[in-house]
């Protein structure tokens, strides 16, 4: 039986790019206040100067609320999805995601601590998250490296669950400490994951991180392919598996932590999106990772649009939406035995 790869890679990328443009526009148009597409386009193109020369309400909504939110959604979705694709490749296991190894839990704890201490300055949040995430990965990696023996993926994942639970407990404790203050509500909503607090500063901080991280991961996609034939096999292909793994794990930690810092814990994007893209275009990471990045960005913006509109005028945390969509789909994949991919 020949493996079906119905769509050429070029076509997939073309479709993804078109979808991303459409998604971007939709993200600007959809929301509690309906903005006609023609107005949206003209404001975007003419920088929102209305006939009388003053910024209109629409313009303010677009430039101050919708645009940063859509852009943050694209960046966070991209970061989570490409991290997931990389983790699955590293562990040669389609069940891996940025959240195994407790990265997200560690990052949450770090970010929550920063919020608790009321540290101001936009860099503190991702920094705290990164320190927390790196701590979690570091602990697990040290555990795994014991006595030079190879550690099975299952040991790693189990250790990840345990360390994740530990960090979650710390986060809960931080929330408990902040009880009675306004910060507690902030923290709880932040943990549930959402793009509510999107602003231009977040976008400006996150953009270089995501751009840099994604580029590095794509540069290592060749190594990921080689690692698919095992670490020794990769070594015979001229790859230094230990070095590659460390670089990729560090970058994944950076991307995931930054996403968590600005958007809280948004689950399932990093698990589902790489999975679907692998079904569509095969496992070659040189094409899979960029496609996954774009698809993740698209998916998160749509999830956020749903979060904004389902219980209008209130908003749902987007993490609820992704879990609602992602979990059943994932179970379906498991059932369909396509999880073997």
């Amino acid at each position: 039986m020949k493996r079906k790869r119905t769509y050429s890679r070029r076509l997939v990328f073309a479709v993804l790019l078109v979808l991303m443009v459409l998604t971007f526009l939709a993200g600007v148009v959809v929301g509690p206040v309906h903005i006609p597409i023609s107005d949206a386009l003209s404001y975007l193109l003419r920088r929102g100067i209305s006939a009388d020369g003053s910024p209109s309400v629409f313009y303010l909504i677009i430039s101050q609320i919708r645009l940063p939110r859509v852009l943050l959604g694209l960046l966070v979705g991209c970061a989570l999805a490409i991290s997931g694709g990389t983790m699955q490749g590293l562990f040669r296991n389609p069940l891996a995601s940025p959240y195994v190894l407790g990265i997200a839990s560690g990052a949450s704890t770090g970010a929550a601590l920063v919020m608790l201490m009321n540290l101001h300055g936009v860099f503190f949040l991702p920094l705290g998250a990164f320190v927390g995430g790196a701590l979690a990965v570091g602990i697990i990696y040290r555990l795994a490296q014991e006595r030079g023996k190879k550690t099975s993926v299952y040991t790693l994942i189990l250790a990840g669950v345990a360390v994740g639970a530990l960090f979650s407990a710390v986060t809960s404790f931080i929330i408990f400490l902040s009880s009675g203050t306004e910060r507690m509500t902030d923290l709880i909503f932040w943990i549930m994951g959402g793009l509510v607090r999107a602003n231009w500063t977040y976008v400006c901080v996150l953009f270089p991180i995501v751009a840099f991280g994604s580029l590095v991961l794509m540069a290592f996609s060749r190594d990921l392919n080689a690692l698919a034939v095992g670490e020794e096999g990769a070594f015979h292909l001229g790859i230094n598996p230990e070095m590659s793994k460390r670089v990729m794990l560090s970058v994944v930690t950076l991307l995931t932590s930054s996403a968590v810092a600005f958007a809280g814990t948004i689950g399932f994007v990093g698990l589902i999106i790489p999975h679907i893209m692998r079904l569509i275009m095969g496992p070659d990471h040189r094409f899979l990772l960029p496609a996954t990045a774009i698809a993740g960005a698209i998916f998160l913006v749509w999830a956020d649009m749903a979060a904004r509109t389902v219980v209008r005028p209130a908003e749902l945390p987007v993490g609820i939406i992704t879990a609602f969509l992602g979990a059943p789909f994932f179970l379906y994949l498991l059932k369909a035995k396509k999880a073997r991919m």
């Binding site: 493996r3 490749g89 040669r92 296991n93 389609p94 392919n225 690692l227 698919a228 034939v229 095992g230 020794e232 096999g233 070594f235 015979h236 292909l237 001229g238 790859i239 230094n240 692998r278 095969g282 496992p283 070659d284 073997r340 991919m341």
Partner: peptide, 21 residues
Amino acid sequence: PRELSRCLTAVEQEHEVGFDF
């Protein structure tokens, strides 16, 4: 590793490939 891989390679006894390549 890269220099080595250009002159020597090995075929292992067991082959477990991670994905559907």
